[in-house]
């Protein structure tokens, strides 16, 4: 299916333009329809940072240096993943108008929604960099290792796409996957090193950084952005393999179950 999509793109060049158009409209609907506009994208991680800072740094006194930057990058990656996946569980129902009357490829609908989330993510990443470089005191600063963040983010997008196709296909058969996924992401948040010291996290939950793929993404993002280190290569490779396998499963389900969405939903 993916090879067919790429071939189609080359043949009919309006596909990239269409994905971008749908992404812009999705982004506008999400952020510009309320009075706070784009600021809303930033308020969510800032309010989360405030709460977790009080709980984990002040009350539990974890002693993690530059805890706000540590939280900031972890939260925006996690929120990006959750928004992409939660926002696409019902996509075959909410975006039915796009494929019900034409032979448009459904994968474009997923890509446009994830692209809309990317715009919000880059907005947050920009503020993270400003905060980390110029406001947070005593940081190491960004170095050349920050370039590793590009493949790490691509990996996150691939995971989001894979989970989106899997979940939305399941939705065709079982509507309560929306609530079940909310519970899973709720658990996933705590089975990740977003708010915890990495050593304590690994001691308490050995192997969790491999079970939860976003845990590995966050660990490596912190290595390359906060600590001027290279990624942990085993996690880096493992998460790409994880994404590749899930994408194959997602493509299979979309082809088998998602293709019947127009008659089942």
């Amino acid at each position: 299916m993916f090879i067919k999509v790429v071939k189609d793109w080359i043949r009919r060049s309006n596909k990239l333009e269409r994905i971008w158009l749908l992404a812009k409209i999705e982004f506008k609907l999400r952020y510009y329809e309320n009075k706070l506009g784009l600021l809303w994208a930033l308020i969510k991680p800032i309010s989360d940072i405030f709460i977790y800072y009080i709980a984990f740094q002040k009350i539990l006194n974890q002693g993690i240096p530059n805890f706000v930057s540590f939280l900031f990058i972890g939260l925006i990656l996690w929120n990006f993943f959750v928004e992409c996946t939660s926002g696409t569980v019902q996509i075959l129902s909410t975006k039915k108008y796009l494929y019900e009357y034409t032979n448009m490829n459904k994968i474009e609908i997923y890509l446009s929604t994830i692209l809309a989330n990317c715009i919000g993510f880059f907005f947050n990443l920009f503020f993270f960099i400003i905060f980390y470089e110029f406001i947070d005191k005593g940081t190491l600063g960004l170095s050349w290792t920050a370039f590793y963040f590009i493949p790490i983010f691509i990996n996150t997008v691939l995971l989001a796409l894979a989970f989106s196709t899997i979940l939305s296909s399941i939705y065709v058969l079982a509507k309560d996957i929306t609530q079940i996924w909310m519970v899973i992401t709720g658990i996933g948040f705590w089975v990740s090193p977003i708010v915890f010291n990495l050593e304590k996290f690994r001691t308490a939950l050995p192997g969790a950084d491999h079970v939860n793929p976003i845990a590995g993404i966050i660990i490596n993002a912190r290595n390359v952005l906060l600590y001027q280190k290279s990624p942990e290569w085993n996690l880096f490779v493992f998460d790409f393999i994880y994404a590749a396998i899930l994408i194959l499963i997602g493509a299979f389900l979309l082809n088998k179950v998602g293709s019947k969405a127009s008659e089942k939903l």
């Binding site: 009919r12 309006n14 333009e17 269409r18 158009l21 749908l22 409209i25 796009l98 034409t102 448009m104």
Partner: peptide, 11 residues
């Protein structure tokens, strides 16, 4: 714009 694009037209 969305329908036109879905039908294969460029912007």
């Amino acid at each position: 714009y969305v329908s036109g694009s879905v039908l294969g037209l460029k912007i």
